[in-house]
Design a protein around this nucleic acid. Structure first.
Lengths: 227, 227
DNA sequence: TTACTTTTGTGTAAAATATACACATAATGC
DNA sequence: GCATTATGTGTATATTTTACACAAAAGTAA
């Protein structure tokens, strides 16, 4: 029984970056005929012989040149039969993070129609991309409390105050500096470097590093991150 | 730019039922040419104009007659380009639960090639269905502790000892009866009925009911289930 | 060089939550 | 009525979470 289907399969990525103490999303300006010149998530159609994650990375490279530090599958959108006006498209959405020190700010120029948008100043998006983006935001916020995923948004070495600020910004609730530090340090996957960093004024602060190996070791022992 | 793709899209469902104090999965014996007569998850190809969840429910009805009490999207499998020997197939996997009182035990007969298998006595499965099943098991176990999903596996009215047994079986760790009861009751979504149920011997026990409305009310107030 | 501002770094007491634990009650079967 | 089986319940202890304030190290401006 040979099957004929008239459904296309695409991938879309919600890529988050953290800069200027604010969460940003990577968007591209569409060039195709549908939703021409509207902002959209990075994505495109999957090639016949291409694994899904490869497709995501390829589109990301082609459209923006960005390389991810974290990537996970989010959800497959396709219940709304006409999300794409051309024909039925099912989109496997991914959710990615990029290390703050790797972010090269890109703007909306003729050459490169890609831009980092602060999540609180988003433009209207093509297709059902707003819905996808919101799912990704929910997922990010939820994961922050039970997976040490926030470190993928920071540079390799960071201040405790930066980590704290990130949590405050993304979760929108206050943090007690002493309790937060105690809690985070108690897990044992943060290591103190011998480096210091100074702001314009104030006491210089130690830089810390997230030790991924150590984290996985703890995880395998059944010790789980939980804020 | 018209796109040509040679990828098929299917849905597969891992359906769990709880009977004889054991977790079971619904499997069907394949009739098609590939993996003929092997056991597989319920599933099939998505119709062009059909939402994904509709496809799952349709296949489930067609192949087994079973109706679900809980359904959620699990994961989309498609990175392994040749999971299906015929052509590339991307499968959106779902994870479903069925209320214990609705389970009609079905066996492997000529008429109905479907069967409830205890999860600890599973046969080899077609395609990559073992992998899918394991993901679903992981998800079920994880969710049990932060969503009151276990109630969807029990009959509408159940004994506390049955709920306790379910958690013991699925999570594989001991429970202190007194503390467990205190904890569960403290959430306030379980209601005591005036009904009793007796086993062969021993003191008769009260039947309880899960109040879904109450649960959602609590959830909306920011009170979350957590064991 | 002094005093003012900014940011980091740290401990302890009180409150809330989780854990450990044992015996009386209500039924059945012999 | 006695043995067996399963339900139902409270309290004390340990652990975890929360609340909270002041000294240290730098820069800046008078």
């Amino acid at each position: 029984m040979p099957i004929r289907q008239n459904i296309l399969i695409a991938v879309d990525a919600v890529v988050f970056g953290y800069m200027n103490a604010n969460l940003h999303v990577l968007l591209v300006k569409r060039k195709g005929s549908t939703f021409h010149k509207e902002w959209a998530l990075v994505g495109g159609f999957v090639l016949d012989d291409e694994p899904l994650t490869t497709a995501v990375k390829r589109e990301l490279k082609e459209e923006t040149g960005v390389q991810l530090d974290y990537l996970e599958q989010l959800f497959t959108f396709g219940d709304t039969v006409d999300r794409d006006p051309r024909s039925r498209v099912i989109s496997v959405a991914y959710f990615g993070l990029i290390n703050s020190s790797k972010i090269v700010p890109i703007g909306d120029t003729d050459a490169m129609d890609a831009k980092w948008y602060p999540v609180n100043e988003l433009p209207d998006l093509a297709f059902d991309h707003s819905e996808i983006l919101n799912s990704a935001l929910d997922r990010l916020r939820a994961k922050l409390t039970y997976q040490p995923i926030g470190f993928d948004l920071l540079p390799n070495e960071f201040l405790f105050s930066e980590l704290e600020q990130l949590y405050v910004t993304l979760l929108g609730k206050d943090i007690d500096r002493r309790n937060f530090r105690k809690k985070i340090m108690s897990f044992g996957f943060l290591e103190e470097t011998s480096l210091f960093k100074q702001k314009k004024s104030g006491r210089p602060a130690k830089l810390f590093r997230f030790n991924d190996l150590k984290y996985r070791e703890l995880e395998s022992k059944g010790i789980y991150f939980d804020l």
